[in-house]
Structures are given as structure tokens and as C-alpha cells.
């Protein structure tokens, strides 16, 4: 697909605070977030439940507002993007269920072209090509006329990724793309994401609880902790003993040699 040649960092986050603002009350979920992702990188956000992984993802996707700090996409501030500009820069795959499962796979993937279509949503030849490319990249030719309620969880997840692909953005954000899937399908989805990132030069950032898999597959990992956050390549993070701090040591311990967690007996 199209390779955007740019000197800018795809996603740059500086001293970001995230959380919720309610009239006079500000609830900070996480602060002092600093990291940057280049084009073509696959990155994961890991951390315990409630640490703010999804909130971070939603803030980056402009679903909710940041509290302070800066988020830059290709060198331009997130808030300076118009809705349509943003829609052609960032696509999302969320955990929320589809409003209508009566859509066919093809219809659903075609909806990814909305930022580019005219006022009534007519698909141009370019749109149709992009849709075909997304379908063939994920390998959905056999499923394209099926209704979404006929699909398994793993198939539906792949369809949602295809929809994000057809939106043709430089960044794709995914919220827990592997939850509810078995081991085989988890690996399948993560390998697919890696393939997409490396072949299309898209930046892919997702939240996950599959720490061991992300160590093996991701280019970068952001570990969110209460006090501080760690960001870097998996090997660096292992050396820094960053994974040891992730969980209380009386339940699980991290084995740096194998890159896996052991249950403390």
C-alpha cells in the first residue's frame, strides 16, 4: 500500500496526562507519559487492569481529551487536525461491540472509506481498490458476503482490522485486539498486525495482557506502572528489569532468561 515518506516521527507523546474532567473535578489516571513511535513499528501498551491503557488509547485516538502535555502526529499537534484529517491519519479498533451485526463483511470494510467519500458516501474506483487490497491482505475473500453475526470472534476481529486498513491511515490503534480469543487466534492476530506494520509502514499501537507474546513480536513496548512508565525495545526493557515491577512479586515473578512469567508457589 502507500508508503508515506516523511522525516517526522509518526506518533510523539510528551509529558502527557490522561484522565477525566468533570466540571470542577479532575481525575488523573496516568501522567508523565513520554514515548515516540516511528513509521512501520508495532508497539504494545501493557500494564495491570485499571492502569489507564484504554484511556491512553482513547486519548490518542481523540475519543476523549487529554488533560495536559502534547500528542503530535507526523509533527502536527493532535488538536490541530480537523475531524476529517484525523480520520485519515488514525483508525481505531475498539472493544465495544458493533452497533449492528447485520452488516455484511464487505459493507463493514467499505465503511472505512467514509473519510474519503462524497456527501452521500458513493465509493470511487480508488475506494474500491483500497477495499479489495484490505480484503486480500487479511485474507477475507471467502467471508466477504457473510453477515457479521455469522462470524466467530476471531473472524470478526480480522474483519475489524481490515476495516481499519481500508481507512488507509498511517496509525492504527487497537484496544485489546486479542481478548476473548484462544491461543492460536491470539498469535494469528498479533502476527497479522506485525505483518501489516512491517509491510505497509503503518504504525500500529495496541493494548494487551499478552505480555509474553508482545515481548516476542513487538518492536516497542510501553509498560504502564503507577509511579513511572517504561518504554523501549523488549530486550532493553528486560535488561532494565522493567517487567519485574509490573506485578506484585508475591503473585508472579518474571524470568528474564525465558521472557516469561512464573507463578509464585
Amino acid at each position: 500500500m502507500n508508503k508515506k515518506t516523511t522525516t517526522h516521527t509518526a506518533l510523539k507523546v510528551n509529558d502527557l496526562s490522561i484522565g477525566y474532567r468533570n466540571k470542577n473535578e479532575i481525575t488523573v489516571i496516568a501522567k508523565e507519559l513520554d514515548f515516540q513511535l516511528e513509521h512501520g513499528e508495532l508497539a504494545a501498551i501493557v500494564g495491570v487492569n485499571g492502569i489507564g491503557k484504554s484511556t491512553l488509547l482513547r486519548t490518542l485516538g481523540n475519543v476523549q481529551s487529554k488533560l495536559s502535555g502534547s500528542v503530535q502526529l507526523d509533527g502536527k499537534d493532535l488538536k490541530k487536525h480537523s475531524p476529517i484529517e484525523l480520520a485519515s491519519t488514525i483508525s481505531v479498533v475498539l472493544t465495544e461491540p458493533l452497533a449492528s451485526k447485520n452488516l455484511t463483511v464487505l459493507e463493514l470494510i467499505a465503511l472505512g472509506r467514509q473519510p474519503y467519500t462524497n456527501w452521500i458516501g458513493r465509493l470511487s474506483e480508488t475506494d474500491k481498490t483500497k477495499i479489495k487490497e484490505a480484503i486480500s491482505m487479511i485474507g477475507l475473500e471467502n467471508l466477504k458476503h457473510k453477515k457479521c453475526y455469522e462470524l466467530s470472534d476471531g473472524q470478526l476481529q480480522r474483519v475489524m482490522i481490515a476495516r481499519a486498513l481500508s481507512q488507509d491511515t498511517s496509525i492504527i490503534l487497537l484496544d485489546e485486539p486479542t481478548s476473548h480469543l484462544d491461543l492460536h487466534h491470539k498469535v494469528q492476530i498479533l502476527k497479522l498486525l506485525k505483518h501489516i506494520a512491517h509491510h505497509t509502514q503503518k504504525t500500529i499501537l495496541f493494548t494487551s495482557h499478552e505480555i509474553e507474546m508482545t515481548i516476542q513480536l513487538c518492536d516497542k513496548i510501553l509498560i504502564m506502572n503507577k509511579e513511572s512508565h517504561d518504554f523501549g525495545e523488549p530486550c532493553e526493557l528486560i535488561q532494565k528489569q522493567a517487567f519485574e515491577r509490573l506485578f506484585p512479586s508475591d503473585t508472579v515473578t518474571f524470568d528474564a532468561k525465558t521472557g516469561s512469567f512464573k507463578i509464585k508457589k
Binding site: N62, P83, V92, P97, L103, Q114, Q167
Partner: peptide, 10 residues
Amino acid sequence: LLGENYARSL
């Protein structure tokens, strides 16, 4: 048909 958050992201 996708949901409100998806619509916004589009």
C-alpha cells in the same frame, strides 16, 4: 451502524 465512537473516528 458501527457505533458512535467508530462514527466519530471516521
